Simulated assay, not measured.
Amino acid sequence: MSVPLRIALIASARFPVREPFAGGLEAHTWTLAKTLSDRGHHVELFAAPGSDPALGVRELPVHRPVLSTAARADISMPDAWWMAEHHAYLQLMLYLARDGRERFHVVHNNSLHHLPVAMASTLRQPVVTTLHTPPTPWLESAVQAQDDCPVTFAAVSAHTAAAWHATAPAARVVRNGVDTRMWAPGPGGPYLVWSGRLVREKGAHLAAEAARQAGMPLRLAGPIGDRRYFAEHLAPLLGDDISYEGHLDRHALARLVGGAAAALVTPCWDEPYGLVVAEALACGTPVCGFDRGALGEILTPDCGRLAPADDAAALAALIPEVVRLDRRAARERAERFCSLDTMADQYTWLYEELVA
């Protein structure tokens, strides 16, 4: 067994890291923190207020700084949330620069904020940053502002690594893993399932159109991230054959996914990874999705099909093929390619390499 490491894990300040998860980033952070802790490492998670206390959380101080009247009147003053988030990460990085050397072997930045990268040179221990999104101007600027950026980057897919190649050419691919014990094989059933944040870029309305064209019922699950989108584009589609099951915790969601004949995955943007694909496969549920982003890295003909982007009719035409695929093949793909143990091994090896 590896020597126990002391790891500072920096989460996003946007949403608490707790169930039911706001999105894939929070689910991934929770899973990584718990798995590393279960392996005997000491993980201190810096996360938004309200995060799961069982993870050993230190709350990020996400509050507005006390600004003078003159500062607040400045026409360049950003909005309140931007300022609160900036203040939280600035305080955290100053704390790590001051006291982190004695407390941690490695700092793992799992947030989307630029300051942990921009201020990495102030720390005396190695810094790992996971790239969860396409390139952003703030993060590219943080890297380019340093003659020799000391951060080691990991990308959640080969697609994401390629997108970041100009800025982080040495990024290693460490795919997000799912707990194949918790996401257990299900029996399948007579309906289709779609899960994720209910926002336009996830394309749940296209899944509803495809399911209806294919003549199969669809169950939707996830947090409503955009209430206007839900009201205007999804609510009118709901009925006996298309239902919204709510924002479910992992166990309820796993039962729903495992009871489906197939999972529809309909991103309207280039998905950097696609955690819902891995979750469905772990439940033995084959996937029918759009060929966007990293989905083609995860799926094989044994466990899924991909339609051209944004084409609900083409997706509907593939559904009869997908529901006939072998559920055992889907499960085996998850175990081999996107398991939690594989992800945790790769991050542990990376930490040990950098610390050594």
Results as ranks from 00 to 15, higher is better:
260 A>G: 09
226 D>Y: 00
255 R>P: 07
250 R>I: 02
252 A>Y: 10
232 E>C: 14
220 L>A: 05
221 A>E: 06
226 D>A: 03
258 G>C: 08
258 G>N: 01
228 R>L: 13
235 A>H: 14
224 I>K: 12
230 F>R: 00
223 P>V: 06
242 I>A: 04
238 L>E: 02
252 A>E: 14
243 S>L: 03
220 L>V: 11
221 A>M: 04
220 L>K: 06
259 G>H: 08
251 H>M: 14
250 R>E: 11
237 L>P: 01
221 A>L: 07
258 G>Y: 00
252 A>T: 14
221 A>N: 02
235 A>V: 08
247 H>N: 14
253 L>G: 02
259 G>T: 12
256 L>P: 02
237 L>I: 01
227 R>G: 07
225 G>L: 09
218 L>K: 03
251 H>L: 15
243 S>H: 02
259 G>I: 11
215 G>T: 07
256 L>T: 10
219 R>G: 01
220 L>M: 13
260 A>K: 02
218 L>R: 01
240 D>R: 04
234 L>C: 03
216 M>P: 00
229 Y>T: 06
232 E>M: 14
238 L>P: 08
226 D>C: 02
213 Q>S: 13
259 G>F: 04
223 P>A: 12
227 R>D: 12
248 L>H: 05
252 A>V: 11
258 G>T: 07
233 H>A: 12
252 A>N: 08
255 R>E: 15
251 H>S: 15
254 A>Y: 00
235 A>I: 06
239 G>S: 11
220 L>Q: 06
228 R>Y: 11
223 P>K: 09
232 E>A: 15
239 G>L: 08
221 A>G: 06
